[in-house]
Simulated assay, not measured.
Amino acid sequence: MSVADPAASTSPASTATQALRAAAERGDADAVADLLAPDVVFHSPMTERVTFVGREEVAALHRDIFAVLDGLETTDPLALGDSRSFSFRAQVRGVELEAHVLLHVNEQGQIDELKIFVRPFPALATLFGTLPPRVSARRRGPLTGTVAAIVTWPLAVAVRTADRFTPRFL
Rank of each mutant, 00 (worst) to 15 (best):
P122C: 09
R138W: 08
P132V: 11
M1W: 10
P167S: 09
V157C: 12
D70T: 12
F117R: 10
Q18A: 15
L124N: 05
L155T: 15
V95P: 00
F169W: 13
M1E: 08
P167W: 08
L114E: 09
D64N: 12
V3A: 13
T75S: 12
V95A: 07
R84M: 12
L72N: 04
G71I: 10
V32N: 02
G109A: 04
F128V: 14
V101N: 11
A158P: 01
S11N: 08
G109T: 04
V151F: 08
L20F: 14
T17G: 10
T166I: 15
I150F: 12
L155I: 15
E113C: 06
H43E: 14
L114R: 01
G27S: 12
F165Q: 04
A90G: 07
N106P: 09
V135H: 03
G94R: 09
T10Q: 14
I150V: 15
V3I: 13
T75Y: 04
V159C: 11
A59K: 01
S85L: 13
A37R: 02
D64L: 07
S87K: 14
R138D: 09
N106Q: 06
P77M: 00
A33C: 01
D30M: 02
V68N: 03
L170N: 10
R139N: 11
A99F: 10
E107K: 10
G94C: 09
P45I: 01
F88E: 07
A60H: 05
A23I: 01
P45T: 07
F117S: 12
L61T: 00
E73R: 13
T144F: 11
E113L: 06
M1R: 12
T144K: 10
L20K: 09
A19D: 00
G145S: 08
